[in-house]
Design a binder for these strands. Structure first.
Lengths: 186, 186
DNA sequence: CACTAACTATACCGATCGGTCTGGTAATAT
DNA sequence: ATATTACCAGACCGATCGGTATAGTTAGTG
């Protein structure tokens, strides 16, 4: 097989995921109807249901895409040769910036858990995401990582996101960054 | 005037707010339809629209009620004569407990901001809430409060809530509590 | 060529949403 | 006695939701 059909330059599935990624993240999952996702993707409604069982499956695929994006972004921002405090700052500073630009729409996983509190599949991806963040932050601390320190970094990252989303306070985000930097330097 | 009508033991408005408080908080705002709120309150639908302009007004009233509740609860938990670290613990520990009991449904204000991201009135109450929390935590730090320390306590409280809601991790909530206790003791 | 597979376009479905309207009851105020 | 006020019960409305069905198009494959 390996892509037997040439089909459009990008497949309907890819267009749908791109559309869902934009709309779900910017306007929320419940506020984004299937029809809008389809129209925005420039795709037929049937193509959605050929590629995804239902809206929930699309949401899960969207979240998995976001998780993948988080990982790639975190690696792109990270320079393992830099001092630890700079590696921390590189992770937090874009958050503060997007608050200032009013482009921050919250953590996709937190948002999804709150919007669909009874959806087990959403909780699963959210759990995966949190494990990934924890691992990334632990690596950043180095081989001598104490479990407690990694937990504290996770908490500060959580805090920064809430300060950004609900508080819309870039200074508060930077204060969280400062705390995290103090932590990794200790 | 001052309560000229004796009417039912509790007014329709009170019953509606009690119903909305339970349902919005436990199942989410968007997932809770008007009809359910009305039925659960044991009240006529018209009574809802006699007391509130629309669902959004009911949501705002619900949030104002939650803010009032937060303040009263915070004062009830707080003993100004206790050491600072104990006063901090008293605020965080119930959070950890409710995670263990699986009764934690998240911060009503954060949830509302995420569920209704374009509702200005919701953002206003959320802002009020955050100001109240900050003031309470600053008082807890004492008269010699540095602004930075109060910000850090706010961040740790935000962190504990996310750890509780998304992570469902009571240990993580207690780690946030420990960080906050270290902060107020310094 | 015939076949299949992915796709588009759109009509349609039942359910549910927020909100309105009608009509009736009970108690207070004048 | 009569208005007024607060309430209840429930039919009803248009809009929108997630999801299905129909029918036709396009392009690569044996």
């Amino acid at each position: 097989m390996h892509s037997s059909t040439i089909t459009p330059i990008v497949s309907a599935k890819e267009r749908l995921l791109a559309s869902a990624g934009r709309l779900f993240h910017e306007h929320g999952i419940n506020a984004t109807g299937i029809d809008l996702v389809v129209r925005n993707a420039g795709v037929a409604k049937a193509s959605l249901y050929n590629n995804f069982a239902n809206k929930e499956a699309l949401v899960v695929a969207y979240l998995e895409q976001e998780l993948d994006g988080w990982i790639r972004n975190a690696h792109a921002l990270d320079n393992p040769l830099s001092p630890r405090r700079e590696r921390v700052a590189a992770l937090f500073e874009p958050l503060a910036r997007s608050v200032e630009l009013n482009t921050f729409h919250g953590c996709p996983f937190t948002n999804a858990v709150i919007e669909l509190p009874e959806c087990a599949a959403v909780r699963t991806v959210a759990r995966d995401y949190r494990a990934v963040v924890r691992t990334h932050l632990a690596n950043l601390l180095g081989a001598d990582t104490i479990s407690t320190a990694a937990s504290r970094l996770v908490l500060l990252y959580d805090a920064a996101i809430t300060a950004a989303k609900v508080g819309r306070d870039a200074a508060l985000v930077r204060e969280a960054s400062t705390m995290a930097q103090e932590l990794v330097d200790a």
